[in-house]
């Protein structure tokens, strides 16, 4: 009898019981830290005040105020936006092109698809290291090829105005395969009849793309752009590994600033302020995109 009671209790509350582990972890690992980040950002919490609590003070918005006038941080924001503005359209465009090329079952298309996708399943850290070798001014193959074409060797990552462009190129190369896959999945959902109808009207491949594929991929495109934008904003591994934000801050990004403030300088209050600002930026961008994109794509 008692056993039955327990059983029926368990069964009646199955929903809650099944969901509680995830809810609990999410609460502990997302909501609590988020609130903590918010609270910490209004204090001067640092290594100093953690080791000696007497130094801990509530400093109000001063972390935010000093960040927004801090040229180094503004440079980081600027670099991150520059990266995003170049990577998102180029990567999305390239991915769409790839998807159109490899859509099909011919062997060469399968091989190409794999080679486009390989960088995605090679981690960013590995690729950063590989590109550091490729772009090495003295022993890297790229400079050697350039010199064979009698072009001056380039400093690449060691030059202020080239470093970010190198990181952009390599990031586009790394991520395009992923978006290509998303586009391919989107293309599978396009009814075949539409292409058949187009074939009857003798439309060219370009017209096929322009009037059938692209319009029907609208939602996929929005999704891809959104995801890519957020990923682009998180730019960290490449500058952290390849350039440490240099030369002369040319590849300093928001997350690298966050990391340096927290784990190199030990200023957790200030770093938390950066993380909250970062959250606000990501939130704003995704809200804006969600509202703006459909119109732009229609026109």
């Amino acid at each position: 009898m008692k056993q039955l009671n327990v059983r029926s209790f368990l069964d009646r509350n199955a929903g809650l019981i099944l969901s509680i582990p995830a809810l609990f972890i999410l609460f502990l690992m997302v909501i609590v830290p988020f609130v903590m980040a918010l609270v910490t950002s209004f204090t001067n919490l640092s290594v100093k005040s953690l080791l000696n609590p007497n130094h801990l003070q509530i400093t109000g918005v001063s972390n935010y105020a000093s960040l927004l006038t801090d040229r180094a941080f503004l440079t980081a924001i600027q670099n991150t936006f520059f990266f995003t503005v170049l990577v998102v359209p180029l990567q999305t465009g390239l991915a769409l092109l790839f998807a159109v090329i490899v859509k099909g079952t011919a062997l060469w298309q399968k091989v190409l698809k794999t080679s486009f996708f390989l960088p995605v399943i090679t981690s960013m850290a590995v690729l950063s290291v590989v590109w550091t070798l490729l772009l090495n001014p003295s022993i890297g193959p790229i400079n050697t090829i350039l010199s064979l074409l009698s072009i001056e060797p380039q400093p690449f990552l060691t030059h202020k105005s080239q470093a970010m462009l190198c990181i952009i190129t390599m990031s586009i190369w790394q991520g395009a395969g992923f978006q290509m896959m998303v586009f391919l999945a989107g293309m599978q959902a396009i009814p075949k009849q539409l292409y058949e109808a187009a074939a009857i009207e003798h439309s060219s491949p370009w017209q096929n793309f322009r009037y059938v594929t692209f319009p029907l991929l609208r939602n996929t495109t929005i999704f891809v752009i959104l995801i890519t934008t957020i990923f682009a904003f998180k730019l960290f591994i490449q500058p952290h590994l390849i350039t440490q934000g240099g030369p002369q801050n040319a590849t300093m990004t928001i997350i690298l600033q966050l990391y340096n403030q927290a784990f190199v300088n030990g200023s957790y209050g200030k770093a938390s302020a950066i993380s909250i600002l970062f959250f606000v930026i990501v939130l704003t961008v995704s809200l804006v995109q969600r509202n703006l994109l459909p119109k732009e794509i229609k026109s």
Binding site: S19, L23, L26, M29, V30, I31, V32, P33, F34, M36, A37, T40, L45, I230, F233, K234, F236, I255, L258, A262, F263, Y268, A271, S272, S275, I276, F278, F279, V282, L283, S286
Partner: peptide, 24 residues
């Protein structure tokens, strides 16, 4: 409400949580 909340959590980037998680 709970599910809306969960969906809302998707937008919080891990980078925002990294420092408190480290301290915690």
């Amino acid at each position: 409400i709970l599910f809306t909340l969960i969906t809302a959590l998707i937008i919080i980037p891990f980078e925002t949580l990294a420092i408190p998680l480290f301290l915690m």
